[in-house]
Amino acid sequence: MRRRRFLELAGVACGALALPGCARGPESPPPGAGALPEAPLLPEELRGKVFVARGTDPAASLEAAVDAAGGLVFVPKGGTVVIKPNAAWARTPEQAATTDPALVAAMVRLCLKRGAGRVVVFEHTIDRPAAQVLAMTGIGRAASEAGADVIAGSSESDYIPLEVPRGRLMKRDTVARILRDADVFINMPKAKQHSATELTLGLKNLMGINWNRQAWHTGPDLHQYIADYATAIPLHLTVVDATRILLTNGPKGPGETADPREVIVSRDPVAADAYASTLFGRRPADVGYIAKAQELGLGVGDMAALQVTRV
């Protein structure tokens, strides 16, 4: 990446980058005040339905899959949408460790077209500084040019306490403060190999809206933590980026990649992950958190019960 290009991207990312920990106004409630709405159980008619579009244009694939899934009917006019891509690492899009920026931008545009009043792209980057990571991934610029606010939750004060009453192992944790203001939450993971959890997909991507990831990794059962956490997150849509996937040396790479050129859309977060796991030659049961999420009633993880619609 050329320096001028990098600095340009970094500038865009910094310019668009809100740092809530620094910029919070006096009108904001103190840490701990308020809470997320209770995460509703997935309606029966949405369970197990997965929509898969394949093609060389990620934006076109996304639009086709979202249309097939019934559109963004859950986005209220003037409402706030929070999108969580995987932008954790200082990696370029071709390295397949982060969500394709074209896909993130396309999602932003779809939400605005639907009537959203504000779209926020949020990430708690692992590499730092966050502005550099968002620049290198291409997501900072792509999202802001599409009309989103880009927020990097780099400070503990960017998170609020979260109760996890349906969790088996986890009973409380933290969640990005911005989600308290969201009417809609859309998860946009990158499908990739992960040395600790076999694969990182949608449910795993939710770790990036929590403050202390280390506690999960060093705890007794990472898979159960991932599934437990998802029970407390009001999630409206999962869009798995499988345009290019990372096959080895995940989650950061660099490693071997493959190009399924697929965009996977589902209201059922477990079904989205279950289908995505097959792109790696795995069964959903090979990924511990998928089975545990199904046990918790979050969705359908059994391939035989999935309804996959190809568009």
């Binding site: 692992i126 500084p129 040395s195 600790a196 990831r213 280390q214 990794h217 989650p251 950061k252």
Partner: peptide, 24 residues
């Protein structure tokens, strides 16, 4: 070295560098 891009980890703190890959 790029300012603010340095990360150090010791023991389980290596998770700050490799996330889930740190156990390897």
């Amino acid at each position: 070295a790029v300012a603010d891009a340095t990360v150090y980890g010791r023991g389980d703190g290596i998770v700050d560098i490799y996330n889930g890959g740190y156990e390897d």
